[in-house]
């Protein structure tokens, strides 16, 4: 029986959507799972543990079109401190844009890491509209898709899955504006203030 290590590569790991995605995965995965945030200080500890698992699920957001630095730095350390037994690496990547395809570069970079370091790539779930989808009634789609991801990892039937909000782009832009307006409102900041053209002034 395998065991899955879940690595959260979000810079705001404990409060991140990646944590929520990870929790959903843990709920549906029939294998034992262990969850870890990647921090600046625990790379070596994680490198030592990784060999104990049959599978790793790396959960992360897209940052500036590619891997977040938090994850990139960990991968560089893992390259220097490889485990004896290498697990299969699966991915759950999300971006705030409606096009889940905007995650493709990050997935290709992870494939490069795996190829260079002789890890087998497992399943991939690419989520679009990933910042807001969990707060909408479309979160039922998230659960369904992560359930399928968890099944594929547990049964070693690795596959690529995709998901985004089933909205037109125009509707998505309207919904995302509302989402960010509410975000600002919770901080006491108006739409007009958030819409400023000023930078550092």
């Amino acid at each position: 029986m395998g065991k899955v290590m879940i690595l959260n590569g979000s810079p705001r790991a404990p409060k991140s959507n990646s944590k929520i995605y990870s929790d959903i995965f843990r709920k549906y995965c029939k294998l034992d799972t262990e969850y870890f945030n990647i921090s600046k200080t625990n790379h070596i500890e994680l490198c030592k543990k990784i060999g104990e698992f049959s599978d790793v699920l790396v959960v992360f957001p897209l940052y500036a079109d590619s891997l977040p630095v938090t994850l990139l730095n960990f991968l560089k350390n893992l390259e220097l401190n490889p485990p004896e037994k290498k697990p299969v690496i699966s991915l759950l990547v999300n971006c705030g844009f409606i096009e889940y395809q905007q995650n493709d570069i990050a997935v290709k970079m992870m494939e490069q890491f795996c190829k260079k370091n002789e890890y087998k790539m497992g399943s991939v779930l690419k989520i679009g509209s990933g910042e807001a989808i969990l707060t909408t009634f479309f979160n039922v789609l998230v659960k369904m898709k992560i359930r399928r991801l968890a099944y594929s990892v547990a049964n070693k039937k690795y596959k690529t899955f995709t998901l985004t909000m089933p909205l037109s782009k125009r509707s998505f832009i309207k919904a995302s504006t509302k989402y960010w307006d509410n975000y600002g409102k919770n901080n006491g900041v108006t739409h007009e203030e958030m819409d400023t053209m000023n930078i550092e002034s």
């Binding site: 979000s10 810079p11 705001r12 991140s16 957001p61 940052y63 977040p68 630095v69 938090t70 960010w180 975000y183 600002g184 919770n186 901080n187 900041v189 203030e193 958030m194 819409d195 400023t196 053209m197 000023n198 930078i199 550092e200 002034s201």
Partner: peptide, 16 residues
Amino acid sequence: TNCVGCFGCWTKTPGK
């Protein structure tokens, strides 16, 4: 230092 993903520059102190 690295971005901590707080969205402060968008929703707390826009532009900063």
